[in-house]
Amino acid sequence: MSIAARDIHFAYHGRPVLAGASLALAAGERVCLLGANGAGKSTLLRILLGLQRPDRGSVTVDGTALAGWHRRQLARRVAYVPQVHVAPFPYTVRQVALMGRLPATGLLKAPGAADRACVGDILEHLGIAHLAERAYTEISGGERQLTLIARALAQEALLLVMDEPLAGLDYGNQVRLLERLEGLTGEGYGVLMTTHDPNQPLTGSQRVALLIDGRIAADGHPHEVLTPEAIHRLYGVRVELLHTADGRRLAFRPAGRRAAC
């Protein structure tokens, strides 16, 4: 199962945002998309999800163009995990996760025992079963992100497209969420996520893609893609790459900065 965007062009109010971007994701892969603020990361995700029509270029899921997919069928292949938000109504965690069964049941049929069991298992699997009857509006950001992931898994989609899943999470929740995503990749899910922290994919992701000037400037293993030069092209800042004593890549650090800070 795979999703691929080819040669995507998109302009927003006449200002070109994407100019020939291509990106693909297959089941079992974890891809991290890096780009500066306003580089068009979210736009590219929305185009991949079929939420935004590109000016030019094509998006295919399993080789079939998006236009050829019925929305409900598509929702069982590709799921969207939005940035953590606050819902206007205090749905319970279970209710939010059950919304993921919509593509399977349709709009009119109430979820049955099998749907409830499926959602119960997913909440258990993600370690949030004890929150099932709590209001989504009253749990922490990390728990809300897991709830949205539970909803995506309930769609039975193998490809998860996540917009800034780490934004707003504390350090502990970031680490736990990344471990969770690594686990999902191991189970065969494909995960595409955007992030702002170049240190995070340095050690974890299988692939890193850099969105610069509306195109994917580099796409590959973090070792090849993530260099101090690449960071400079991305964000316009000079960094140095720190290594561990045994020579493994550790983290980027702004160059010329005193260690005292």
């Binding site: 939420l51 069928q73 799921a79 593509p103 769609q155």
Partner: peptide, 20 residues
């Protein structure tokens, strides 16, 4: 339309991605 409205109340993009 209850279930569709549930999804819609979470946001247009999310509801569309859920096939609504």
């Amino acid at each position: 339309m209850g279930r569709a409205l549930d999804a819609l109340s979470m946001g247009d993009d999310e509801a569309r991605a859920l096939g609504v």
